[in-house]
């Protein structure tokens, strides 16, 4: 299939909403991600059946069922692999991956590296709340070292992981950070991520109102629009990502790497392959 012909504003955000009601806590940032996603899809005017949303396990990964797109709610940590297979097999479909900081950076960490490196045309939205919500508040790879939890009394003492730096070093073609307190901006980041060919990584700071009740207010205060415009220079982006405060919002890097999309050479009759064996 080829490019989908679409009319601008042919779709409303509500066209991307399913009848399934979210189980997320009221106040959770993930509700805003869902709204942002719907707005982004409407702006892109993608027919819902041409979009697939793939996820793993965790609060964030409940997202696909709340959309009216095709969805796959798979196993913990493997959403990127599943999405890669789907996109390579069906390049005509827009594939969005929804994940969280535990699903994406801990159990799914290896796939994150290789998805960035492979640069398949995917949009990877990670709802980062620096905690495991569905298993009652254990520390994740992005949790602060002194955050006290039942499984890590007094804190882990381990430095958090910087997913944006890792994405850049691993070859992601688009890197952005948003805060769910600003739905419009999150939607804009998703739109740009989808429009940019290759692997697009969007970290959305998405507060957990149940296990991190400080986050909502705190992040409202500390997040800020990036002071400098996006760059396509990985060296500049690296310095910027290494030195920023983790609350710098916007498109932080957009490169020019060609996406990975193996193309079949031909569509010959399989029977012709018997020449491989015939003596």
């Amino acid at each position: 299939m080829n490019m989908i012909q679409t009319q601008p504003h042919a779709y409303k955000p509500a066209d991307y909403k399913s009848a399934v009601k979210p189980v997320w806590c009221p106040g959770c940032g993930d509700h805003s991600v869902l709204v942002s996603f719907q707005r982004a899809m409407a702006e892109l005017a993608l027919p819902p059946e041409q979009v697939a949303v793939v996820s793993g396990i965790g609060c964030s990964s409940r997202l696909p069922a709340y959309t009216n797109c095709y969805g796959f709610h798979g196993v913990h940590g493997r959403s990127l692999a599943l999405a890669t297979g789907l996109k390579v097999a069906r390049p005509d479909i827009t594939v969005i991956v929804a994940s969280g900081d535990g699903d994406g950076f801990s159990i799914g960490g290896n796939h994150f590296l290789h998805a960035c490196r492979r640069n398949v045309d995917l949009t990877y939205i990670v709802m980062d709340n620096r905690i495991y919500g569905m298993t009652k508040g254990q520390p994740s790879p992005t949790t602060e070292p002194d955050w006290d939890t039942a499984i890590s009394p007094g804190g882990t003492g381990v430095s958090p992981f910087n997913p944006l730096v890792i994405a850049l070093a691993s070859g992601a073609n688009f890197i952005a950070r948003g805060f769910t307190g600003d739905v419009g901006s999150c939607a804009r980041l998703i739109v740009e991520a989808v429009r940019t060919p290759g692997f697009s990584f969007v970290q959305l700071l998405s507060p957990c109102v149940t296990f991190r009740d400080d986050q909502q207010k705190e992040w409202k205060k500390v997040t800020h629009e990036a002071m400098v415009p996006e760059t396509d220079d990985p060296g500049r982006a690296a310095r910027r990502l290494m030195s920023d405060d983790g609350f710098n919002l916007g498109i932080l890097f957009r490169g020019h790497r060609a996406p990975y999309q193996p193309k079949p050479l031909a569509d010959l009759d399989v029977a012709r392959l018997e020449a491989e064996f015939a003596l």
Binding site: A52, V54, Y70, F72, G74, V75, G77, R78, A81, L82, A83, T84, G85, L86, K87, V88, A89, R90, I93, N110, H111, L113, H114, P262, K263, P264, L265, A266, D267, L268, D269, V270, R272, L273, E276
Partner: peptide
Amino acid sequence: TIPQCGGELLQAEDELASINMIIGASFGGK
């Protein structure tokens, strides 16, 4: 051989990825 027959082969980063990749591709109808 598969590229000659309208298909693709991907080398995955591990077996966890390969099985999930084929599930994704099959979900896509291939």
